[in-house]
């Protein structure tokens, strides 16, 4: 559960955010709900942790934030991917793919001859 995977999640939370926002501008609550639902509730992050992460990404220049209005006329802060953020997302996604691939290759490798 969350407590065990926290270290891992901390590194990947940024990537999750960037990916989520890549579909279009979203407010914080929308991002958190999206991640929650798409991951099949697998990542049970403490929801508050999202916001400092958003702001760090904003400060790094990967996200752009602006106050706007929701479809129900509520005022909310929307986050949008910047071109730098887009590039970062692609690079990190590639990295993550290689990581997963490497992990999978190791984990799924057939039993070696010396262990037979």
């Amino acid at each position: 559960m969350a407590t065990q995977s926290l270290a891992l999640l901390k590194g990947t939370l940024d990537l999750l955010i960037l990916k989520t926002v890549s579909w279009g501008p979203m407010h914080g609550y929308g991002i958190s709900r999206w991640i929650r639902e798409r991951s099949g509730e697998a990542f049970r992050i403490e929801e508050g942790a999202l916001y400092p992460a958003l702001r760090r990404l904003e400060r790094k220049g990967w996200l752009k934030a602006e106050w706007g209005e929701t479809d129900t006329g509520r005022e909310a802060k929307f986050y949008e991917l910047t071109p730098e953020g887009q590039a970062r997302l692609e690079a990190e996604a590639r990295e993550w793919g290689r990581y997963v691939e490497a992990m999978a290759r190791v984990l799924n490798a057939p039993r070696p001859a010396w262990a037979m």
């Binding site: 501008p25 929308g30 005022e75 929307f78």
Partner: peptide
């Protein structure tokens, strides 16, 4: 989620 254009309000 986001409906109004950026910079609106």
């Amino acid at each position: 989620m986001r409906r109004s254009k950026p910079g609106g309000r």
